[in-house]
Design a binder for these strands. Structure first.
Lengths: 344, 344
DNA sequence: GAGTTCTATGGAAGGGCTTTCAAAAGTAGG
DNA sequence: CCTACTTTTGAAAGCCCTTCCATAGAACTC
């Protein structure tokens, strides 16, 4: 059937051990033997059997990523970094899109199947407590991206810092009546961004009515969606409060909804209302959004590096890195266009 | 170390064969034995070793997808269909993003590594001729999505039909001077869409100047990008021809660029110029684009089904399915909003 | 109750690789 | 030329499963 090392061994007049050693570039093989084996292998168009290797090596060179599937451009962009880095290291990436908590559990379970993957990346999803112990027991490395648990490595975004910069930017442009269209508070980023928004205003001595803040009640995607942004702004407009001169919106995708709502009411951006949002997904530039940039590609890259380190040093202390978002100024805030990117 | 069927066999006082039979729900095991084994397996928290299974079964339950990575929302949406379908069948999906022809080759090569995957889905990329023979020899199933080769199964989009409908729609709205902003002609869809556009106009007895058609020269993504659309429209405007009252644009993402270019020149859509594009990616509705909808999720789903069939019947005749896009009317063409979706 | 057919079961073989171990071959030193 | 190492090599063991084969026992048949 297909060519195995036995075929090569026979043809090259050596033992299978030698073939394996040649193929793996192990030491202690004469150049002469090595070349003979390589020639035969090439001639027979030999392809190593991945699973047999994985079984023998106890290592699969495959990682899995569990993400809230494709509902959010943010993940896709991080994933891009993950995939490219992985690929250059000869690893494969299995993608699991989880649409609900039950699927998350199912995929986590699957990831723990001994030997299937060398590690799992969990994106933006809270790790169910009952898995914490399981993962530690099974010794399957887990790296959290955009989410947190003290027992595992994680890559995070400094939401508080980002929200502070965004808010300060609006203040520096002279805005004193500012609103916020937020996602669902059940998500940690939404909570963190709101808290910093409030705190920054307070420190600047600015008072705003409670009604200026709209938190989404939507379940889907924790309110990080276009619809949520649209409805959030509509809800605000329905409250009859004086229109703030600026809004901080908790994500680009929501901001797109906000923009649509404002257009519908003939409110101009940035002339009547300035907008600053969060993420800087690729889309943001199409809408000329001023936003807090997260280095998504980099985050993906780093996540992989962490994972590899963890695989190689299972007992190393847990580490958590947090990226600081940088302000990207475009048209929606009314300031000049210019690019200010702080990277940690 | 980790729990194997041997541990279960010992504990349950049966042979490993019996354990395997129970775990695989094979026939000929007494209920009593079956229950005893299951109890023990559960107690020991047994997880089958995926690679050992794959090796023994000669089947990995894993597919790979090679896509022009994440540069295009179209793929992501198809991928969503692929992933969900696959997941429900207990398959895993490995994703390979290829940024150039060389990477495509590398990934194809990797896919052929015996046993690694049960099959490969190739998206929108031309299959290099030298792989044709290799794939047939190695007997690794290959399904083409949005691309074509007579030797393999494929899922396609009826680009010609779609372009015809789009063009007819513009004609039916009264437009007589129509332009087209196209992608790079080195891509088959771009060629097909252009050909039908021309033919439809001709059949309607409408003559347009050659200068009304702009083909992208961009390499990146074959010109299916926002930048390409922006530049395409700018190039047209620089030609000094009378402004057509309508444009057919070869993809939504380009249309977004076109919109930006028109806005920059203060040309209103749809009042001054009507736009119809192609794809109906999720984004399209945010821009209120009238566009030709491709059932991307469905395409993904079908691709998987074909693949499974191919795996089960390697010798079945090659088949090719083509989806007919449906017109989705939004604001950009100036007609009333209404949803007209033809599905094949 | 002897002979026959089925069903349930244990365990070896096999899948293709890596790695360990022991033997063979080579090198150096005296 | 013999001894003491070192390097190279072949082959067995092991990774964990599925599957096949042979056997033991149960269930039937007449």
């Amino acid at each position: 059937m297909s060519v195995t090392i036995y075929d090569i061994a026979r043809e090259a007049n050596v033992g299978i051990g030698t073939v394996s050693r040649v193929l793996n570039n192990s030491a202690n093989v004469t150049t002469e033997t090595r070349e003979r084996v390589i020639t035969v292998a090439r001639k027979l168009n030999y392809q190593p059997h991945a699973f047999a290797q994985a079984l023998a090596r106890k290592r699969s060179n495959t990682l899995s990523a569990i993400i809230p599937f494709f509902t959010n451009y943010f993940f896709i962009e991080v994933l891009q970094g993950v995939q490219e880095t992985l690929s250059s290291l000869g690893y494969d990436l299995i993608i699991h899109g989880a649409n609900n908590q039950q699927q998350v559990a199912e995929y986590l379970q699957r990831s723990m199947r001994k030997g299937r993957v060398d590690g799992t990346l969990l994106f933006s999803l809270e790790l169910p407590e009952n898995f914490v112990e399981e993962f530690r027991q099974q010794k399957v490395p887990l790296v959290l991206v955009d989410t947190f648990h003290p027992a595992f490595d994680s890559i995070r975004v400094d939401n508080a810092g980002g929200a502070t910069i965004a808010t300060e930017h609006l203040i520096s442009l002279g805005h004193r009546n500012i609103g916020m269209i937020n996602a669902n508070l059940q998500s940690a980023p939404a909570r963190e961004r709101l808290a910093s928004f409030r705190q920054t205003l307070q420190q600047a001595g600015i008072q705003i009515p409670d009604g200026n803040i709209v938190n989404s009640a939507e379940e889907k995607n924790d309110g990080f969606s276009r619809e949520s942004g649209f409805r959030g702004m509509m809800e605000f407009l329905g409250r009859g409060l004086p229109l703030p001169t600026a809004f901080f919106v908790s994500s680009d995708i929501q901001a797109i909804g906000v923009l649509a709502a404002l257009r519908e009411r003939n409110i101009r951006v940035p002339e009547d209302v300035a907008i600053v949002s969060f993420d800087d997904v690729e889309l943001a530039k199409n809408f000329d959004l001023t936003t807090m940039r997260q280095p998504m590609f980099k985050m993906g890259e780093l996540a992989v590096k962490k994972m590899i380190e963890r695989i190689e040093h299972p007992e190393a202390p847990v580490s958590s890195v947090s990226f600081k978002p940088g302000l990207v100024i475009r048209a929606s805030c009314g300031a000049n266009k210019q690019y200010v990117f702080h990277e940690q």
